[in-house]
């Protein structure tokens, strides 16, 4: 490719900075990945040396960021036409598509191999599966073909706590599958709430999000259905011994609020108010997921502190 073409669109004197490559890794998505993977690691039985724990978390984070970069490489053509994504590094012209592809590929391979060699291959394999699922199944195959794109593609975002769990235990168990299911069931109402008020963007670029294909009313119905399914899944860690009483209370109360907001979205269908409530559900859904995992983490830390207190009392 000619140099002139390769660097077309690059602003004068404004080459890519470190910040542009960080933006390529979708830092907001990455922060949720780090957090849920950390909870998966902390909630798992047994222990992992802190150094290996840090390496595992770093690999999961970098792997997630790498898949974000590969997603931006593949979606650059539609990103430049959507308000939410037009300022990403490739559409803005500060990073070339080739740079994003190389960056994403190198980091993907490195993170999987490092996690596999230094921690264990179950975790490494799951990370490879996550990256592959996000890029090949979601980004390249489902996203532009079916309104079920985020339902199935949501699995990619649901794997991190499972990888964290596998890093510690070396395997997959009911508990880690439940953590996976919480995020898996949470993804559709979360993204459809966003799609409701970003509908025109998706329509313009031909991405068949549910509101574009089936209309906003059907989307509202599906949000309610998935919210009803999400609530029991959200509470279930208590019943398998993964969460304690504070988890039961938090997940029940927040689940009720989630459902109430979902019904509010269902009932309010016209004008700015409809957009406002959809946005409200979108923002709350992030808080809901964060809070559920934070309580699991908090309970685990409290358990350790109690155990530490008992240990000190015995040996004092």
């Amino acid at each position: 490719m000619a140099i002139e073409t390769q660097y077309q669109g690059i602003r004068d004197g404004a080459g890519p900075g470190v910040g542009d490559f960080i933006a390529l890794m979708k830092p907001r998505v990455m922060s949720l990945v780090v957090f849920t993977a950390l909870v998966g690691m902390m909630a798992a039985p047994g222990g992992l040396h802190p150094v290996l724990g840090f390496i595992a978390l770093l690999c999961i984070t970098v792997g997630a960021g790498a898949s974000g970069a590969l997603n931006m490489w593949y979606d650059a053509d539609i990103d430049r036409h959507m308000a939410r994504t037009a300022a990403r590094p490739i559409p803005r012209g500060v990073v070339t598509a080739e740079e994003a592809l190389t960056f994403g590929t190198v980091l993907s391979v490195t993170s999987v191999l490092t996690l596999g060699v230094l921690v264990n291959w179950v975790a490494g394999g799951l990370l490879a599966l996550t990256i592959g699922f996000y890029i090949f199944i979601y980004t390249m195959w489902l996203k532009r073909r079916t309104p079920q794109n985020i339902v199935i593609g949501g699995a990619a975002g649901a794997f991190p706590p499972m990888i964290g769990w596998a890093a510690v235990t070396g395997g997959v168990s009911v508990e880690s599958i439940v953590l996976f299911l919480i995020i898996f069931m949470w993804t559709p109402p979360h993204f459809w709430a966003l799609a409701l008020y970003r509908c025109r963007d998706y329509e313009r670029v031909g991405v068949p999000m549910l509101p574009v294909v089936a209309g906003p009313d059907e989307t509202r119905r599906q949000i309610v259905i998935y919210s009803i399914l999400l609530i029991p899944v959200g509470i279930s860690p208590y019943f398998i011994g993964l969460g304690g009483i504070s988890y039961l209370v938090t997940s029940s109360v927040l689940g009720a609020v989630f459902l109430w907001l979902a019904f509010k979205v269902y009932r309010t269908r016209e004008g700015r108010e409809a957009d406002r409530i959809a946005k409200q559900l979108f923002v709350f859904s992030i808080f809901y997921l964060f809070a559920l995992f934070a309580v699991l983490l908090g309970e685990k830390i409290a358990e350790w502190l109690v155990a530490l207190g008992a240990f000190k009392a015995i040996f004092a």
Binding site: F21, H49, V51, L52, I55, L58, V106, T110, T114, L118
Partner: peptide, 20 residues
């Protein structure tokens, strides 16, 4: 520079993990 930093980080990680 990015490749150099990346390789440096990998060396440190592999060294630390080996010791552990």
């Amino acid at each position: 520079i990015a490749i150099a930093v990346g390789l440096g980080v990998l060396v440190v990680l592999f060294y630390a993990a080996t010791i552990v």
